[in-house]
Design a protein around this nucleic acid. Structure first.
Length: 798
DNA sequence: GAGTTTGAAACT
DNA sequence: CAGTTTCAAACTC
């Protein structure tokens, strides 16, 4: 993992130590700073190097490896120890290597020390990959100074690439996996980035720790404006100087709408990009005034799929926790700062809020042994559908599961909104998103900010926001449901939806051992947890090796196997103008359905289940998909009709599904994997699982094969493809965290070329002109997505 | 909760 | 690539 290169990258620490801030911190923290050691940085040169490799080689493996390394580094015990021991760690960090998470931790520690009133658990401190994943790009394109120590600590915003933060000559960039970012509302993140850059410039000063930290903190902390606000409140409460600094910074950011930024991408000169996942501290429970928990990011092994990414996306909900655990949990476990959540349970969340403490929900997520310890402490609800979610954890679902993540991401987002409105703050996986998404994060888990291109940035922000909103809304629905609805059925439905979202999948496998795609958990890239009724389950952290091996095997067969199933079209620019009218649904199923008897009106239909209309790619018979028929006859109206028809609950479910689908789509978009669509999203969901998604959501997609394939295609043909296939591009961009990363990485290899389709020959649903999304709802998103396509630049994603 | 239906995933 | 089998979710009762 560690390569000499890494060290090279690392900037000298001495400056940091000398800085007044550093000294101050030292004085504050009981823990004495340990000298900077070569820290396995979140950003390893190696990783960067890997990226190029990715481009070069079509193999996902390479990509995976690189990714794995990155995460591994993040998780690297040495690091973790370091951080734990020394709050100042951040200061000492080698330039690029510095983890935002560490910074965050430091700040958190400080807060804890000074402000007893505010309890900030490590969990809270832990970076949530989904929400705030930052990738550092050191592309030559970028202005980025290679971090000479002397370099001014200013952020440089590359047009295409993103912004690079320089600290003491070191550039610390937080960049989400492109996928993840996209899933989670990357758009916002991008915007924030730009703003952040501005802020830094204003400061224009030598990079100070404070500024750096504050910036990092902000970035980490805030996925959404809401979050930022919550965070502010927390900070304000604390008397700690550090906090103050952060607060000031935050205020600035907020003014600039920077709060939304979730991720920053840094492009490394080499062209390789790495991603850091950071758990955002949740500002939840403003009421209590406590920072409850920070969702942990999901790290997927290189192998992890977008879905897993999205699923991995962690989100915060009122301090409650439904957790989704990505397969990468082991590596993450090392970090253990945050608790991973296998899934988000909205119900659980609601229960917790209610203080009911239902265990039924995903609350008991499977955690890696290490994580489990923490898990008890905080459980997050990770709505992963989605993958979509996702939000992702993505919600951006992101993913995660990428598929699931993608959907979840939306939900998560929604939750946030509700919380905010209610005064509570929920952290949803930007999933992606989920995304999880999840982002999921989600969803979500989760949109990929990967694209460094300015276009993307511009677009993404919007899209990201929209996602966030959607997710938040969904979450709100969920929550409200919890409160308002008591009937078991409704709960069940809610749970189901949430589960669909990715993060909280529950399976009932009897023969597959949860090692086949039959298993929703496995397919979503999450471990099975208590709520699962599976028998002889091997989809557990204990069997991680087996799980990973199986995943690889499946991916080898079908690179897109773990990619989000639903990809959103609406985004594509072209779509808006052209296709929107044509295609009923905003998103489309990756492969299309093959329904014979259900008329695509039941959840047997994956398209319907994903809340998307059928497309040309579908082989269904007698399609009556309410979200859009294969022939395109029932576009927008269909959705509305369904919603109206369905019961309130169902309606909410449908909306959720739609949102999820949207999220997923976003996540997926990034994933490029599905070219057609292609999570998480990772991602779906990093980026949420996991963009992600993303990925469920779908996070950041780790699936090497799939993602790579899709991805590659994009890369190769990015410009062309984008134009020709706007939808796909969008998907890629927005892909859940999980998906995006993997895809990007894997795909990055130019060689891969455009793989269009799924290896399996399954249709990866290429974007059909028909796909046009329903205009009414998604227009905004579409716009955002459109921008995404442009950004397919090599950098972030690949 | 048990049984049926359905279509994706897996297999040949 | 097509056909068949396996599987588990979705659905029904």
């Amino acid at each position: 993992m560690d390569t000499p290169e890494r060290n090279q990258i690392g900037a000298p620490i001495s400056k940091f130590e000398d800085s007044p801030v550093f000294n101050y911190i030292n004085s504050l923290s009981p823990i004495k700073p340990v000298q900077s050691i070569h820290i396995t940085h979140t950003f390893n040169p190696l990783n960067f190097a890997s990226l190029p490799s990715v481009f070069t080689s079509p193999h996902v493996n390479s990509h995976k490896d690189s990714r794995f390394l990155k995460r591994y580094n993040c998780l690297d015990p040495s690091k973790s120890e370091f951080s734990s021991e020394n709050g100042n760690k951040v200061c000492t960090n080698e330039g690029i290597d510095t983890d935002v998470a560490q910074l965050y931790d430091n700040s958190a520690e400080l807060q804890e020390n000074f402000d007893s009133g505010v309890s900030i658990g490590e969990s809270s401190v832990e970076p949530s990959t989904e929400h705030s994943k930052f990738a550092i790009e050191l592309p030559g394109i970028l202005k980025y100074d290679c971090g000479s120590p002397e370099c001014d600590p200013t952020l440089h915003c590359g047009n295409e690439a993103g912004c690079v933060l320089k600290l003491s000559g070191k550039s610390v960039s937080l960049i989400q996996y492109g996928q993840e970012v996209t899933l989670n509302g990357s758009p916002e993140g991008e915007v924030h980035l730009s703003e952040m850059c501005r802020v830094d410039q204003k400061k224009g000063v030598e990079c100070d720790w404070e500024s750096l930290i504050s910036d990092a903190t902000d970035i980490l902390i805030f996925n959404s404006p809401n979050e930022s606000e919550a965070f502010k409140g927390l900070i304000q409460k604390s008397m700690d100087p550090m906090t103050r600094c952060c607060t000031s910074v935050v205020s600035q950011l907020s003014r600039n709408d920077i709060d939304n930024m979730q991720t920053m991408q840094i492009v490394d000169p080499v062209g390789s990009s790495e991603q850091h996942e950071i758990n955002d501290p949740s500002a939840e429970h403003e009421e209590s005034g406590e920072l409850q928990e920070i969702d942990q990011t999901q790290d997927y092994p290189a192998d992890t799929n977008l879905n897993s990414m999205s699923s991995s996306m962690s989100e915060k909900m009122d301090g409650e926790v439904g957790t989704c655990i990505p397969y990468a949990s082991k590596s993450l476990s090392n970090l253990h700062r945050g608790v991973r959540r296998r899934c988000l349970d909205f119900n659980a969340a609601g229960a917790r809020r209610k203080n009911l403490g239902d265990g039924s929900n995903c609350s008991s997520s499977i955690l890696s042994p290490l994580d489990e310890k923490i898990a008890s402490h905080d459980k997050q609800l990770v709505p992963i559908k989605p993958s979509g979610d996702s939000s992702r954890c993505m919600l951006p679902g992101i993913g995660l599961h990428l598929n699931a993540l993608a959907t979840t991401s939306k939900d998560h987002k929604n939750v946030k909104l509700e919380n905010l409105s209610s005064g509570r703050q929920l952290y949803l996986p930007s999933s992606t998103a989920s995304f999880p998404s999840p982002t999921d994060s989600q969803e979500p888990l989760n949109k990929s900010l990967t694209s460094a291109s300015s276009e993307r940035d511009a677009d993404l922000p919007e899209s990201g926001v929209s996602h966030v909103e959607d997710a938040s809304q969904a979450a709100l629905y969920l929550i409200s449901d919890d409160f308002s609805q008591n009937s078991p059925k409704k709960k069940r439905r809610r749970l189901e939806h949430a589960g669909e979202s990715e993060s909280c999948k529950r399976c009932n496998c009897k023969k597959s051992k949860c090692l086949k795609l039959y298993c929703e958990c496995f397919a979503a890239g999450v471990y099975c947890i208590e709520p699962c009724s599976c028998l002889e389950c091997f989809n557990k952290p204990i069997h991680e090796d087996t799980v990973l091996a199986t995943r690889k095997q499946i991916e080898s067969r079908n690179p897109l196997a773990f990619a989000p199933k639903v990809i959103r079209n609406s985004d594509s620019v072209a779509e808006i103008g052209e296709e929107s009218s044509k295609t009923p649904a905003s998103a489309r199923h990756k492969r299309g359905c093959n329904c014979k008897k259900s008329n695509c009106l039941k959840k047997y239909c994956e398209c319907y289940q994903g809340g998307v209309g059928c497309s040309i790619g579908c082989r269904c018979e007698g399609c009556k998909n309410a979200f859009g028929r294969k022939d395109g006859s029932t576009p927008i109206g269909a959705e509305v009709e369904q919603e109206e028809e369905t019961e309130a609950c169902e309606n909410s479910a449908v909306d959720k599904a739609l949102q999820k689908s949207e999220i997923q789509n976003n996540e997926e978009q990034n994933p490029a994997s599905a070219l057609p669509r292609t999570p998480l999203r990772l991602s779906r969901p990093l980026v949420p699982l996991p963009f992600s998604s993303h990925g469920k959501l779908q996070r950041p997609f780790l699936t090497v094969g799939s993602s790579s394939g899709l991805f590659t295609s994009q890369k190769l043909g990015k410009p062309n493809i984008l134009r020709s296939l706007p939808k796909f591009e969008k998907h890629f961009q927005t892909t859940p965290e999980d998906e995006m990363p993997e895809i990007l990485r894997s795909n990055c290899s130019p060689n891969t070329g455009i793989k269009s389709a799924s290896p399996n020959s399954k249709r990866v649903s290429p974007p059909h002109s028909n796909f046009g999304s329903s205009p009414s709802r998604r227009s905004g998103r579409k716009l955002i997505l459109q921008s995404i396509p442009s950004f397919p630049s090599l950098t972030p994603q690949h």
